[in-house]
Design a protein around this nucleic acid. Structure first.
Lengths: 123, 123
DNA sequence: CTCAGTGCAAAACTTTTGCATTTGC
DNA sequence: GCAAATGCAAAAGTTTTGCACTGAG
């Protein structure tokens, strides 16, 4: 079964994903690792990230400039996304309760994202 | 300047986008219109949607199965996204206040998205 | 006339996949 | 040995773009 075996590449990818607060893309993770691990394929990065998402060990935060941006920190927190430079930062999650008719929907993750402009881009 | 001239195609694309609560993709909008307007290009749909997003007349709700899903209704409301079938539904927006250090961030839009499983997919 | 908008098709990109090979157990 | 994981490269799919033409003002 998928994900059942140990894999050093997987560990590497996961720790790289968790090592930053920049909410990176798959390509970024790949590029970070490529230097020290020339034998690493982009396909493997994508395959493992898909696995992390399935297992709830990572979350897709936003799609910026055509790239899916990820977060290895799945604790409840919200995100600030700068429309201008693409930077993504963390903020505390506001308390919220699902309102309105939820049609029997079974929620397992809530994303709160503030889109706007960061200080540097506002200048 | 971009968007300054009237364009019947633009009107068509915008009204199609607003005519549904299905939160469609660009391709869906294109396919709806293609039948009655054989002279319509997918590029035009993408170009106009980009314009709507710039002008705040439309919002990207989520990226499902590699497709960006849109909403022509920019009033404050949250979304339920079914991970299983990709269906997106509207719910009332919970009241929320930005908490934590927002680092001077200038917010102009807040997205609240509940990921989970809809009734049909739960069966 | 001038510049915005469009069709068409090619290009650009990200993400996925098939297959042969390697690795974990 | 068997099934999972990977590299590599090709494929798939969405989105963007260049260019010549059309349409609005």
């Amino acid at each position: 079964m998928k994900g059942s075996n140990y894999s050093s590449k997987r560990e590497l990818i996961y720790s790289t994903l968790c090592s930053t607060k920049s909410h990176p893309s798959a390509k970024w993770v790949y590029e970070q690792l490529k230097e020290d691990h020339p034998d690493l394929s982009l396909g493997t990065v994508y395959r493992n990230i898909a696995l992390f998402k399935e297992n709830g060990k990572a979350v897709a935060v936003a799609n910026i400039l055509g790239e899916e941006r990820l977060d290895g920190d799945t604790s409840a927190h919200a995100h600030l996304v700068c429309k201008c430079c693409g930077k993504i930062e963390d903020v505390d999650m506001p308390s919220l309760t699902l309102k309105g008719d939820t049609k029997g929907f079974n929620t397992d993750f809530v994303a709160v994202t503030y889109f706007g402009t960061c200080t540097e881009c506002s200048e």
